[in-house]
């Protein structure tokens, strides 16, 4: 393998420095003693302590997680159904409209999605709260799920499902026993994507929430609008930490599985 040229080394170093230094500074100053987040005055974990005392913040975190779990689970079911329809159902009445509605939310500015959903909820007289946020999040994240799952389904070998049918499965059994286990990784990553999108969303949640349900991003936004606070740094650090551990462990697990599979395949070839 060729060595990287100096230019490439420099561009990669600067690029990743740009991506990571802001977050590292953020994390560093969550352990700062002083309330000023720009002057280092000694190591302390007191902001984490204060965060744990902040009832409103914890309440918001709980609402956010609840919303994210429920909406991403419904979105995964609906998104997988939609993906299956898109890839397998051939032609049906209004297919173009359907695929348009799957792709449009991906590129729709959040302010528009939020505004339109709010007007709907007011129009039908639905009280705004956890339910309305869940409905809103489910709607846009199901589209992401369906894109992830349909790209997996597109490369899925149709003959596997036909083989299952040939061996006596009904259509539903073939899906449950063969298709679903095989596309499971894509469905899981669809769920994870929906989950993080929901955790992360500020704009749509701001439009569709009511006074009873404040999510974490709304809380953070209103706090940081006023300025920088070490408590928010502490909260951010926790969130970054969770995501980092999650993403890294997920990729290690899948990498190990891949390495194992490669090795076994090579052994199988050698055995002949």
């Amino acid at each position: 393998m060729k060595r990287l040229s100096a230019f490439n080394v420099v561009s990669l170093t600067l690029g990743f420095a740009f991506l990571y230094i802001p977050m590292l500074i953020l994390i560093l100053f969550s352990f700062n003693e002083s309330k000023l987040v720009t002057v280092w005055s000694g190591f302390s974990t007191k902001w984490y302590g204060e965060l744990m005392q902040n009832e409103a913040m914890l309440q918001a975190a709980w609402v956010t997680i609840k919303v994210a779990v429920i909406s991403s689970s419904i979105a995964t079911v609906l998104g997988t159904m939609a993906a299956y329809v898109m890839v397998r159902s051939g032609r049906f009445l209004g297919r173009t409209l359907f695929s348009g509605m799957i792709y449009a939310p991906l590129v729709m500015p959040e302010v528009i999605t939020g505004l339109s959903l709010l007007l709907l909820f007011i129009g039908i007289g639905l009280d705004r709260g956890v339910l309305t946020i869940v409905l809103a999040h489910t709607t846009f994240s199901m589209c992401y799920v369906s894109v992830v799952v349909s790209s997996r389904l597109a490369t899925f070998d149709m003959s596997l499902e036909e083989a299952a049918r040939d061996l006596g499965c009904s259509q539903a059994q073939a899906f449950r026993l063969v298709t679903l286990p095989i596309i499971a990784p894509a469905v899981v990553s669809g769920w994870l994507l929906a989950f993080t999108l929901s955790l992360d969303d500020l704009v749509i949640a701001s439009f569709t929430t009511g006074p009873a349900a404040t999510t974490l991003p709304i809380k953070i936004f209103s706090a940081v609008r006023l300025g920088v606070s070490p408590e928010i740094n502490a909260l951010s650090t926790i969130m970054i930490g969770i995501v980092t551990v999650g993403v890294i462990s997920a990729s290690l697990v899948s990498k190990r599985a891949l390495v194992k599979q490669r090795r076994e395949e090579q052994e199988a070839v050698r055995a002949t």
């Binding site: 802001p22 977050m23 953020l26 991003p217 953070i220 920088v228 951010s236 970054i240 993403v247």
Partner: peptide, 11 residues
């Protein structure tokens, strides 16, 4: 995967 809001806030 990390929060959009947090990344903007960092700046």
């Amino acid at each position: 995967w990390t929060s959009f809001l947090i990344r903007v806030y960092a700046w």
